[in-house]
Simulated scan of single mutants.
Amino acid sequence: MELGRVGIWNRTVAMDEPRSREAAAELEELGYGAVWIGGSPPVSMAENVLAATERLVVATSILNIWQHEPADVAAQADAANAKFNDRFLLGLGVSHGPMVPNYAKPLATMREFLAGLDAAGHPKEKRLLAALGPKMLELSAREANGAVPYLVTPEHTVRARGILGAGPLLVPELKVVLTNDPAKGREIARDHLQIYLRLPNYLNSLRTLGFDDTDFADGGSDKLVDGTVAVGDEDVVAEWLRRHLDAGADHVAIQVLNDPLPVAEWRSLSGLTQGRF
């Protein structure tokens, strides 16, 4: 399974509608290596993209383990790979306390879910974990094929690679606002970040990366925006990609914030797939 160096993180592209299918097919034509379906998608959403393409790797990013049974997920994932030429990766995550009733012991719950996948015969090399902290990263290396960290910096990528060691995949998500207007770009980025500033898992992770409570106040500081979102033109995005890849990432999942289905921006950024890294 060849991911390439650059992929796209998006949810709308996986909707069961013509414009999404057309966008998925175009992403493949543009040379992107993978589509990472955002939110908490079931395996069936990945099949929408798989059916519209021939070569793209498609992954959930991430399937919420609190909402599914491992045996069911294993069967669905294996069926997707059998039907679509072994192009599906199962991204799993524990979500967040404010979003999950009776949320408790996320690491232990993930271990139990992975054991259920093992019992159902799902191969470890076909799964990745949403991981920020050391313990979940260690589990990603031991019981999966790597990690898909979200809302991180290149400094986190260095740290994650050190914990994962050589071999496991490391796929950080990178937020992008493609614009030549820095003020407008920060505005778009700040609007997007609001939901994450209410989720303890992300705040705790960001604190380990040099941000503090002053950066989370009043909609997020310029330091926070500039440190977590690539705002600028194609060259700015290329530099962010280079930083993550040099830090140890195998592949970077670009999330363009300009629009829910930012096809024009994907076209503009497609040159990043042409052997620059």
Rank of each mutant, 00 (worst) to 15 (best):
L89I: 11
E28T: 02
R55F: 07
D218Q: 13
G7Q: 09
K83R: 15
V148G: 13
K83N: 07
L174Y: 00
A238W: 08
D213W: 08
L178G: 10
V57E: 00
Y202H: 11
I188P: 06
P98H: 12
D78E: 14
V58G: 10
L27D: 12
N85M: 00
P260V: 14
A34V: 15
I163P: 01
R159H: 15
M110N: 15
A71S: 13
I254Y: 01
E239Y: 02
P101S: 04
L170C: 11
A52R: 01
L117F: 07
R161Y: 10
V176M: 08
G248I: 09
L90E: 06
G33W: 09
A264N: 11
L50I: 04
G33C: 12
A34N: 10
L128T: 11
Y103T: 06
K184N: 08
G271Y: 07
L137I: 01
V256H: 06
E125S: 05
R267D: 05
E138M: 03
A115M: 06
A119W: 01
A130R: 04
A23T: 13
L117N: 09
L137H: 05
R127M: 07
T228G: 03
E173Y: 02
L114D: 07
D259A: 10
V57P: 00
G210T: 10
L206R: 00
V6Q: 13
R87N: 09
G121K: 09
A108K: 09
A52F: 02
L206G: 11
V49Y: 09
R55A: 13
H96Y: 05
W36R: 03
E2S: 10
G162H: 14
K124A: 15
F211L: 12
D213K: 08
V148D: 14
A79Q: 11
V256L: 04
E17T: 06
V231K: 05
A119T: 03
Y150F: 13
G133L: 01
S95I: 08
N81T: 05
A51N: 03
P98T: 09
P262C: 04
V252A: 14
S270I: 04
D218T: 05
E187N: 13
R276E: 15
D222V: 11
A46N: 01
H122C: 01
D215S: 02
S20C: 11
H244I: 04
A79R: 13
A25V: 05
W266H: 14
